[in-house]
Each structure stands twice: as C-alpha cells, then as structure tokens.
Design a binder for these strands. Structure first.
Length: 682
DNA sequence: GAGCACTGC
C-alpha cells in the first residue's frame, strides 16, 4: 500500500462543506482517507468488500421489508448500497432516502456517490442538510440528516415520496436515530411497499431485528433479515494491564513514552475524557520530552473547544522520523478521523451527560466505556496497517464492561421530542414504541414543562397557537416560548440573536497554554455585563458583526470563529422562519435591556433561583441549593436576588449555567398561572 | 475558584 498522505476533498466538496459550516475554513472532519485514490472510480467500486454482497442485498430486500446490514467501517456500504438499489431500479418505486447522523458525512457521501456516477451532485444524487440543499426534480438518491427526515414527516407522515429508506450509522443510537426508527416502525406497518435498510454494528443487530418484528408476522417470512458484511480493516492486537491503574492520565503518558522507545514508527492516538485531562497529559509528556531532549516525538492536543486552526495541526503528516502523538477527547471516536494512526491508547473511561428528572438537571459524569466504544476506539489503529491498542485496564475489566452505552434517548431531557411526537399525532407518548423507551419520569417531567409553558393542555393536547408553534420551531421548548413572547413584546431581533448564540457550541475558545487561557479570560471580560450571560452573548454577537465578522476579531478576543459564523447562519434562518412562517413581528428593543430580560424570564420562568439569606442560591420550586457556574459572567459579580438559568449541570455541585438577573415581580406578571401554584405548594 | 464529551432540525 502506498504511503499515506492526508488528502483534501475535491474542490466542489470543499465548497459545500465550507458553506455548511465554518466559512472559508475547511472543517476538520472533512478529511477522508482513500487508500485507492490512484485507481479509477469504477475499479475502486469493484474492489470494495461490499461488492460481492450486492446480489444478496438485493435479494434480501425483495423478500423482506427490513434488512439489517451488519458491517465494519470501510466496507463501502454507505456509498454503494444506494447505488446498487438505483442500478436495480428501486427508484421507480419512490426515492431512495439515506439518513446520516452528521451534516458533514451527509454532504461528503452525496458528493462521493455523484462523482462515482459521473454526475454533479443535485441531479440523480442530492442531499439536504439544514441551511443547505442540492436536490432537483431529478433526484432519486437523497442523502439527508436525521433531523431533516423528521421534519419531512411533519408534512408527509407516511413518507410517500420514498420507496426505500436507509438509516446509516444506526448503532450510534442518537436521540434522532431512535425517533426516526420508532416512527418508521409505525409507517412500515401501514405501508407494506416501503423498505427499510438499517446499517448497524454487530452487537446491535439482534436488537434491531427484535424491534422490527410484530405479532402475527409470518415466521417463515420474517419481517427483517440480518446480513453481515466484512470490512476492510487491518488486524489490531490488543494489550491489557495486569493490574488496574490508579491514575490513567499518568498511565497514558507513561504508555506513550514506553511505546515510543520500543515500537516501530507510526502515530499514536490516546483517548482521555476531557479537555482538562488532555492538557494535563500534554504538560506531563512535554516535561518528559524536554527532560530527555527528545526531538522525534511531537505531541498535539485535540478537543472540541480549540480553534479550527489549532485542530488542523493533527492532520499533517509529521516530518520523516518523527512520531506524532494526539491526545484527544471522544471527538476522535466518531467525529473526526486522524490519519496515520497505528497505536491507540484507551483510558477506559468516557464523560457522559445524564438527565436527572428530579432536579431537571444534567449530570456530567465520567464512567467506564462500553465494549462498543472500546472496539470503536481500537479500530482507529487499524486504518493504515496492522495496529496495536493499549487498554489501560485489565482483561477482566474489559470482559465486565457493558456491551454498549445506554442510548441517548434513555438519558436526555424529552420536551423537544415529546412536542415533535405530539405534532405527528402520537397522542399517548407513554405508549409510543421507542426502540429503547425513556424512563417514564423523564417523559412526565417533559409533559409538566410543556404544560407550564402552555404548549399542551390538561388533556395533553397541543395548544393553538403556542403548542403547534413550539413543535415546529427547531429548538428547545423554552427558547421557542421566549421567541414567541418576543414577537409580542417587540424585541424579536435581539432574542433571535440570543437563541442563535445558545444553539451553537461555545464561542469562547479554550487555548492549551495557561498564559493564553489567562489572556482569554481578560479578553472575554470586554463583553461582560451585569445582566448576565445571555446579554453578554448578545454583545459578543453585535461586536462580531460590527467588526466585520473577521477571524482577526475572533483571534484578538479569544472567540471561536466557526461557531460565531454558524450563529450568524442560524440567525438568518431563524429570522426568515419567524417572519415568514410564523408571522412573528421582528422589532428591535433599541437597547431596552430590561425588556430583553423580561422576555428571557417569559421563556425560563420555570428555572428560577433566589438568594437565600444563608448566601447561597436555591431553586424556587424545590429549595435545592444551586451555585453559579464559574464560567458564568455573574460568577465574580455581587449576587443578585433573583436569577433565571437556561441549564443546570451537576458536577462537583449543582451549577446554573447561562444565568440572567431578573426581578421577582416579573414572575407573577409573566407567569401568574405557574407562580400561584408554586407559592401554594411552598 | 471550578472546570463541557459529541451531534442535530
């Protein structure tokens, strides 16, 4: 095999991705590895492992309504199966729709398939992701994100345009994947001519085939069939510790060190759970390197809140004779593929968010990885040549790992999902056939929230206009309510900006060096105001626009350009949506900050804390002690009497995030129904 | 003076 060099995508692909995400910057995940890049496209297609299963796949689809394709990465199923179906004429029965969990892979796959067919994307092969679509009346193979399919369901509940739906990467079990699968099950019972292909990892195949079966089905002709496809991964040898280790950050560093001394050249990828651990390991390893005056080892961090230009560093091939070590969070498990990796170090832990309906908060906890994750991490070593994985736990610990992480649906706040299902006519949410039903408490807590927001009535029916509006808006129920009220108050322009800023990943960059972190903090103060974090975000956005939306501005103030750009796009879309589709009047409050804070209160009145005389905040509804998150603007300011927050996060304490100062009398003014109830209860 | 993994309409 030829020596690997990272390759950019074709020019038109780059454009598409730049449009989708980060302006002129190439997105980190836009890099693809293609070992056969010097072969013609036809030969490449013929060489893919999946080629010899083509007839089998087509046969299975003729005879079963659901086909579960079990295959490792690298089999080519995402690009080839849609083409096999098309070449066999399946498109005559309706479009071939393929859902993907991520935007970038949706665009990349569509471009790749169009290219293999010698066409431009947008003809036979098209794609739709939020903000961006390339489809025409000719389009028969349509790639889309899961969220898009869900939106289409609102307009066409039986998906009558489609003959086949392929749900790719279903094993990831995102919230939206599970929503789509649950709804597709309903549709399949009503439309026997609709076919479904699920692409899954080995351990989930039986789960899916059990889910897609129902009583009364003919046992000679089961509804679903499993089909396994070999991948094209190299062998990966596994190494375990003999004894459990006490400190996996230190162990990671020592493993890198030993490995570097005794193993042949090849890059190393180490998985840790968070930014803090990555930076700690980075420091330690650099000390080792400095101490030994080593010159042939290059260490790089990789986590979500680095700027794109810093992230890009991990994609370059190191100079000859130098080994690259990437210390990464879970971002390297699915979202990005780092080229050249031969050795993987897996610390055995992962950070997960877990919703707690009792306090309506998320907990952020470090837990042992699942077997599925451990396998996925190990697989990152086998993409170039046979690799090695060093697991920083014992074989016994590995054997005892849970087969997989509970799906997102079982550990998330549900109000958005409940609204969507209600809008699709699912009356009794508690009886909806979810692939993995969420805890009843989570559903009940969501119903309570929606009732408080006046989105559903006592019978659980969507209200008009509020409920239907909230169901259609593409963000959380509380933000939607805030937008609705802003139209009436006359401050929708600013509120839309705030919503856009809350929807994107943090705009505050977190550099790796301590000195830069300090400068960042000081730079961020520039935008801070006493009213709190939401108004601060509004200031940042306004300054970004005023200064010409440049990367230089972001660099100067330690802001993440790609996230601000995305906020900008979101804002544009929301403005159009709000004005044209929902008839929300777009006015500016012209600097009336109090109006904005009232409007924020109208959305978040269920999430209020008051300052107890003991000097700590308490949740108004339950009396639970809360603290202001150290990342909040209000952390260093004198404590206000009443605040609303948009998020509660349990780590060492129960922290309020995105906090806004309010006045007590606004609560009874804006939410009299709710505040009478709670005062009685108290 | 504590610390946010990741994705999506």
């Amino acid at each position: 095999m030829a020596t690997f060099k990272p390759k950019f995508l074709k020019p038109e692909t780059d454009d598409a991705i730049a449009d989708a995400g980060g302006g002129q910057e190439p997105q980190s995940s836009a890099f693809v590895f293609n070992a056969n890049h010097n072969l013609g496209l036809v030969e490449q297609r013929e060489r893919l492992p999946i080629r010899k299963y083509r007839d089998q796949i087509l046969y299975c689809l003729e005879h079963h309504q659901v086909v579960i394709l079990v295959g490792e990465t690298g089999s080519g199923k995402s690009t080839q199966v849609p083409q096999y179906l098309y070449e066999w004429g399946w498109h005559s029965k309706g479009m071939i729709g393929i859902t993907e969990p991520r935007r970038v892979s949706t665009v990349t796959l569509a471009n790749r398939v169009a290219q293999e067919r010698g066409e431009l994307v947008g003809d036979t092969v098209g794609y739709v992701v939020r903000f961006l679509e390339r489809i025409s009346s000719e389009t028969q193979i349509k790639f889309m994100t899961e969220g898009i399919l869900l939106r289409e369901l609102l307009a066409d509940p039986l998906l009558t345009q489609y003959g086949v739906i392929i749900v790719d990467e279903a094993h990831e079990r995102n919230m939206l994947t599970d929503m789509v699968l649950g709804l597709l099950k309903k549709i399949l019972r009503k439309r026997s001519n609709l076919k479904l292909i699920i692409s899954s990892a080995t351990i989930d195949a039986s789960f899916f085939s059990e889910f897609f079966s129902w009583p009364g089905a003919d046992s000679d002709h089961p509804l679903s069939v499993k089909l396994s496809i070999e991948g094209r991964m190299h062998a990966v040898s596994h190494f375990y510790l003999n004894e459990p280790c006490a400190d996996y950050v230190r162990e990671t560093v020592e493993t890198v060190w030993k490995l570097h001394q005794k193993e042949s050249l090849g890059d190393i990828l180490a998985f840790l759970t968070g930014q803090e651990e990555v930076l700690e390991a980075l420091d330690l390893l650099r000390e080792y390197i400095a101490g030994a005056e080593m010159t042939n080892l290059k260490v790089l961090p990789m986590y979500g809140s680095m700027t794109s230009s810093d992230q890009l560093a991990v994609f370059f091939t190191p100079p000859k004779g130098v080994r690259k070590v990437v210390l990464a969070t879970n971002i390297a498990e699915t979202s990005i593929t780092i080229p050249g990796i031969v050795y993987v170090i897996d610390c055995g832990y992962v950070k997960v968010k877990w919703y707690n309906p009792a306090t309506c908060s998320d907990s952020l906890v470090v837990v042992p990885v699942s077997k599925a994750s451990a396998v996925q991490r190990a697989g990152r070593a086998g993409r170039v040549r046979p690799g090695k994985v060093y697991r920083l736990y014992t074989k016994q610990d590995y054997d005892a790992l849970a087969p997989r992480q509970p799906p997102e649906m079982r550990r998330s706040e549900m109000s958005g999902a409940v609204l969507q299902l209600k809008a699709l006519g699912i009356g009794n949410i508690l009886r909806f056939d979810f692939p993995s039903p969420p805890p009843a408490k989570n559903l009940l807590s969501a119903l309570e929230t929606l009732y408080a927001l006046d989105a559903i009535d006592e019978q659980g029916q969507l209200t008009r206009p509020v409920g239907f509006l909230l169901a259609e808006l593409p963000f959380s129920a509380m933000l939607s309510k805030m937008l609705y009220v802003s139209g009436q108050m006359g401050c929708a322009e600013e509120i839309i900006t705030i919503i856009a800023m809350l929807q994107v990943q943090s705009v505050f960059s977190r550099p790796a060096s301590a000195a830069a972190q300090q400068s960042g903090r000081i730079a961020h103060r520039h935008f801070e105001v006493a009213e709190g974090d939401l108004i601060t975000l509004l200031n940042i956005y306004s300054a970004f626009v005023e200064e010409g939306m440049t990367k230089e501005f972001c660099g100067q103030y330690y802001l993440i350009y790609r996230n601000l750009k995305r906020a900008c796009e979101l804002r544009e879309q929301l403005l159009t949506l709000a004005r044209k589709k929902y008839g929300i009047a777009i006015f500016s409050c012209k600097g009336d900050v109090e109006m904005l804070c009232k409007c924020i209160t109208a959305g978040f009145f269920t999430q209020v804390a008051y300052l107890h005389h003991s000097g700590v905040y308490r949740q108004i509804s339950s009396g639970t002690e809360l603290a202001i998150h150290p990342n909040s603007t209000l952390y260093t300011l004198p404590q206000a009497q009443y605040v609303v927050y948009s998020e509660l996060l349990q780590t060492t304490k129960l922290f309020m995030n995105h906090v806004t100062v309010i006045k007590k009398e606004w609560l009874t003014e804006l939410a009299p129904h709710y505040y009478q109830q709670t005062t009685v209860r108290d």
